[in-house]
């Protein structure tokens, strides 16, 4: 395919308090149909988007966190999480939704989508993109 570009979605905002997280997820879902090379980065308060145990029943808002688990089926398999942002918030990888995908090049073995990265690695990750979307 001639028009494949590397797209990075940068998520730095918490869910629910503002609509950015939900509407950015909608872009990721639509974008998946365009068969681009897609990556998601969660840093700063964006790490709360993929926190485990979200229950919006009492707040009467739409809980969109299960959608992140479905992204693997849309071939969105590269989710980068800023280590420092987790630490600053007293979180560890275990506090995040376990995001996985089936690797079709490896007999559909289930693999982790989340990769913890340092800020230096984020700098390198950004440099290798063609398009960076932020919301």
């Amino acid at each position: 395919m001639s028009d494949t570009k590397k797209f990075l979605y940068v998520n730095r905002k918490a869910p629910y308090g503002t609509v950015y997280a939900l509407e950015s997820l909608e872009v990721v879902l639509i974008g998946a149909a365009f068969e681009q090379d897609v990556q998601l980065l969660f840093m700063d308060d964006g790490v709360f988007q993929i926190a485990k145990g979200q229950d919006t029943g009492e707040a009467e808002m739409k809980n969109f966190s299960p959608t992140y688990s479905a992204l693997g089926d849309y071939e969105v398999t590269k989710m980068y999480v800023d280590k420092q942002s987790l630490e600053e918030r007293g979180l560890t990888l275990d506090d995040l939704i376990h995001l996985t995908y089936e690797d079709e090049d490896d007999d559909y073995a289930e693999k982790d989508s989340i990769r913890l990265v340092s800020r230096e690695e984020i700098a390198a990750l950004m440099e290798e993109q063609d398009v960076i979307l932020s919301f």
Binding site: R12, M43, D44, Q84, R119, I122, A123, A124, M126, E127
Partner: peptide, 12 residues
């Protein structure tokens, strides 16, 4: 806001 801080940490 920490945007500048995060930015300066992540610039090549």
């Amino acid at each position: 806001n920490n945007s500048l801080d995060s930015c300066l940490d992540c610039v090549g």
